[in-house]
């Protein structure tokens, strides 16, 4: 007995974040009633992305090539390496900053209680890169959660053993933010890490 294609589509759509029974129904009916062409394009794009996109051999970011465009570029500063938790973090840094070094994407964070260890984050690959390439600085841009901090500590020890300078993103009051409405932990952190501006 073959299952009904409509109900199969409804179930399949629900793998998307934020899509429950109602949204999947709305999406499926929209494509069937109004935009069959869009639906076909979506199906092809999905099939192609799922079969062609893999992880960059050097930084573990998503790419359709052997190397991602950052790792393959000849214009990047190869003495600096920024370690982030997810591909979304790479995009955010690329869009917001003038950073022109390389990346390493962990695709997660160390979390012993969830059984996520160094091998799950490709830290064996990272340590090979630290040995083989000549990095002068590692920029740690993991999240400021407890696991992000624990991961940062692990990275500090990895880089420190090899005499590589380590920096960590600053934490503080958001631009355009009012002190009164800044959450207490951030404010406390910003206060203790204040910078001398004169004298």
């Amino acid at each position: 007995m073959s299952s009904d294609p409509l109900s199969e589509l409804l179930t399949a759509l629900r793998c998307l974040p934020g899509v429950g029974a109602r949204s999947s129904q709305r999406m499926a009916l929209h494509l069937l009633e109004r935009d069959r062409e869009g639906g076909r394009r979506l199906a092809e794009a999905l099939a192609r992305a799922m079969s062609e996109i893999r992880r960059c051999r050097q930084c573990r970011n998503f790419t359709a090539e052997e190397l991602c465009h950052v790792c393959a570029s000849t214009r990047r500063d190869r003495s600096r390496l920024c370690v982030v938790e997810s591909p979304a973090d790479v995009l955010a840094i690329e869009q917001a900053t003038a950073y022109d070094g390389l990346y390493f994407v962990l695709l997660g964070r160390l979390s012993p209680l969830d059984g996520i260890g160094p091998d799950d984050l490709g830290l064996d690959l990272l340590s090979r890169r630290l040995d083989q390439e000549s990095f002068e600085e590692m920029v740690i841009a993991t999240n400021t959660t407890v696991e992000g901090e624990a991961t940062a500590q692990y990275l500090v020890e990895m880089a420190g053993r090899r005499g590589i300078r380590v920096s960590r993103l600053a934490q503080g009051v958001p631009l355009g933010g009012e002190l009164e409405h800044t959450d207490r932990s951030t404010l406390a952190h910003a206060f203790s890490a204040r910078q001398v501006v004169s004298g």
């Binding site: 012993p112 209680l113 901090e149 624990a150 500590q153 500090v156 207490r184 932990s185 406390a188």
Partner: peptide, 22 residues
Amino acid sequence: EPVGQRLTLAGRSLWCGLYVNE
């Protein structure tokens, strides 16, 4: 609601804290 500061556990102390939680 937070009552007071988040404890600053740095370096290996952070890992000790995670061990205690585990």
